[in-house]
Design a protein around this nucleic acid. Structure first.
Length: 225
DNA sequence: ATATCGATTATCT
DNA sequence: GATAATCGATATG
């Protein structure tokens, strides 16, 4: 075996994961974003067995019709309809002709708001994630941190790793394991949360609505203000 | 390490 | 017709 690994890159995950209730999401995007850190995104197959699990380590809040950076800013359209619906549903958008990004709707029905998933820490199903990302892995036990980071560090990357598309996942209920894509808690406690301006936007770029777990190596982009 | 750029298409002006 | 909640590749310090 190898020596000199300060920490194994993967913590294997045999504890049970409990779905989050809709009331968790039916709050302000700021609150939901902060409390989503440390929770687990799950992709389940037909057999209800989790195939893919990954810890949520970086998110951004989008506030709705008053937030110029939000897709809800122009008011309800067919694209953003899920954001105006009830909380706890997947809002998936396609961007730059290349990438699908995953959000969860917040607030009460009729009031827009969402949290964008920006980075995950893979827990199980790493080989499938690597296949989905088109990254060759010789021997799964020899995975290095730098390879793992490329799987789910960034909104487009994590979408691809989890096979998220608008046709497949937009509007699906993320509180329901039967949806195939859902969010749960496994008892993990986050230590330190950091807050910075959001990434990659041109409007309302100064608002500090990006939340991430301090010192987590899977966080995307700048780790300083 | 940071900077710049091309890819590629749904959505809106 | 312009833009975009991104990524990966390339160039340069």
């Amino acid at each position: 075996m190898h020596v000199g690994h300060p920490e194994p890159p993967l913590r294997n995950h045999n504890v049970s994961i409990q779905p989050l209730p809709r009331s968790f999401f039916a709050r302000s995007p700021r609150r939901v974003a902060r409390e989503l850190l440390g929770k687990v995104l799950v992709r389940t197959g037909d057999g209800h067995t989790p195939r893919l699990t990954a810890r949520i380590v970086e998110v951004e809040a989008y506030l709705g019709e008053q937030d110029p950076a939000s897709h809800a800013y122009p008011g309800p359209t067919s694209r953003n309809a899920v954001m105006f619906g009830p909380a706890g549903y997947a809002y998936v958008y396609f961007i730059y002709g290349n990438h699908y990004c995953l959000n969860v709707s917040c607030e009460r029905e009729g009031r827009a708001g969402a949290v964008l998933f920006r980075a995950l820490e893979p827990l199980t199903g790493v080989e499938e994630m690597a296949r989905a990302r088109g990254i060759a892995i010789s021997h799964p036990r020899d995975l290095h941190q730098r390879d793992l980071v490329k799987l789910t560090s960034g909104p487009g990357r994590l979408g691809e790793a989890f096979g998220v598309t608008r046709a497949r996942d937009n509007g699906c209920d993320l509180t329901l394991p039967a949806s195939g894509l859902w969010i749960g808690a496994d008892g993990y406690r986050v230590r330190v949360i950091r807050v910075t301006p959001r990434i990659g936007i041109t409007k309302a770029a100064e608002k500090r609505l990006r939340y991430f777990i301090s010192d987590n190596p899977f966080v995307s982009g700048r780790k300083t203000l």
